[in-house]
Design a binder for these strands. Structure first.
Lengths: 153, 153
DNA sequence: CCAATTTAGATGCATTTGCATCTACCGTCG
DNA sequence: CGACGGTAGATGCAAATGCATCTAAATTGG
């Protein structure tokens, strides 16, 4: 193992992750404290957002769970809360008696759009001045590649 | 280059952040579920790690709070737990009667190293196969630049 | 076809988290 | 100096989270 010389692959990977993670923390901290998340926690918004992006409009609970950093039980209760607030609707999955399908209600879609607009402005104000468009594209490419690589295993 | 027309700057920034965030979620999910975090939650490890990287060995509570995605009160109690477990020690800040200095105990340093070794291996196994060394360096550069840009305001 | 295993989601319960607030201390300005 | 606004942490309390477990339904293997 190299000491002092060129950086070891293990160390490089660790530092890469460290940078990615700290950047995420720094951005998220700013976003969270903004006014966009007065009405909804970030995780709750994230669920609405994921549902809004889904082509069919319906998602299984376990599919949702792949996108969000929450345990299965926490997501279950989070969706329960959203349902109580009238932002999502559930129905039993037709093909699988164990499963639950979730979809945005009109009110949920409305709130997602409202928060989303503000959220996107906040993001733009943070990321826009930090990186050139070319750098943003490259960052997007690299993080997409990283995520794709994890999924394939 | 881009397939469908030009992308608006706002949209590009939003998609960049989205990719970064999802990649972080995907990696973190894998890391959390590994055996490295049986003994300590990720946030708790993060505090030990941050303390281990600190040159003086001592850090103020509010300095710690900049690195971790936790509210002030949650961090205060997290440190309280770590102290109860004998992993960190506190002392009043000499120059500021309001402040608290925190440092690793020997046991805390030991545990940080132990978890850290495993953690770094896990990271390497996830990031190493996903991106070339040059890509990792570029990703590190971009995320560092992003974080630096946020700090300066 | 039925028993055994696996998977999806819900639930009891203890822990963790955040908001609001409180106390103690710092720095400033009269 | 002494009041006053601001900052560093701690704390009460309600809400959110995760672990372990449970139920029900699907899948597998005989």
């Amino acid at each position: 193992m190299a000491a002092g010389g060129p950086e070891s692959p293990v160390r490089l990977a660790a530092e890469t992750w460290e940078s990615l993670f700290r950047a995420q923390v720094a951005v998220m901290r700013k976003l969270q404290s903004g006014p966009a998340f007065r009405k909804l926690a970030v995780n709750e918004y994230d669920v609405l957002f994921t549902l809004s992006r889904c082509p069919s409009g319906w998602l299984r609970l376990n599919e949702l769970n792949d996108n969000v950093l929450l345990s299965q039980s926490s997501l279950s209760r989070l969706v329960e809360r959203l349902e109580k607030r009238g932002l999502v609707a559930r129905m039993p999955a037709p093909e699988d008696g164990r499963g639950i399908l979730i979809q945005l209600t009109d009110e949920g879609r409305e709130l997602q759009k409202e928060i989303g607009r503000e959220h996107v402005r906040d993001i733009s104000a943070l990321v826009g001045p930090a990186l050139t468009p070319a750098e943003q594209k490259e960052l997007r490419r690299l993080t997409d590649k990283l995520r794709d690589s994890l999924g394939k295993r």
